[in-house]
Amino acid sequence: MGTATGIIKALNSGIKHLAVKRFTLRYPEQKLKFVGDGYQFDPASGVAIAGLKGRHMLFHDHCTGCQLCSIACEGVAEAIAMVKVPDKWGQNAKSIMPQIDYGKCVFCGLCVDACPFYALYMSNDYELSSFTKEGLIYTPAQLQVKPQVQQDSELIIDKRGARHG
């Protein structure tokens, strides 16, 4: 008798879920909303600001070419290489800026923690797939572009369960 009621209870538990809304996020149409504009670091207080660790944002007017981000990456992924940039900036005597290989990057954000000049942030852009390996290497000019993201889907929890909307 116990076996029969157990099986009925188990079936019933599953059947109840036919009325529950679908929890899945339908990805390319819906995109999850994140907190803030991405992971940032404030060297003055020594504490970072919460946000998604996505593709980097490089501010050319702040970067001094000090290579601290590249040094921070050395033991982690060796994804950052310092390359020459054509334009001249007053604070950047050597005219070198980081170029990031997303085939190697592990998105730990230690390079952002290392930057003392507010030049390197991480943005909400996580769609970095490419058909070639070269396409994953982002030059300083590409890193400068602010990503256009349409992320507005939020998690809704009500009596009928959780769903994305």
Binding site: I49, V106, F107, G109
Partner: peptide, 21 residues
């Protein structure tokens, strides 16, 4: 992901506390 900025590999703890509030 809201706390640490990464969904699976967080790299969140650091000697002396955590990396971000």
């Amino acid at each position: 992901e809201k706390i640490t900025g990464a969904r699976v590999t967080h790299a969140y703890f650091i000697p002396g506390g955590v990396r971000n509030d």
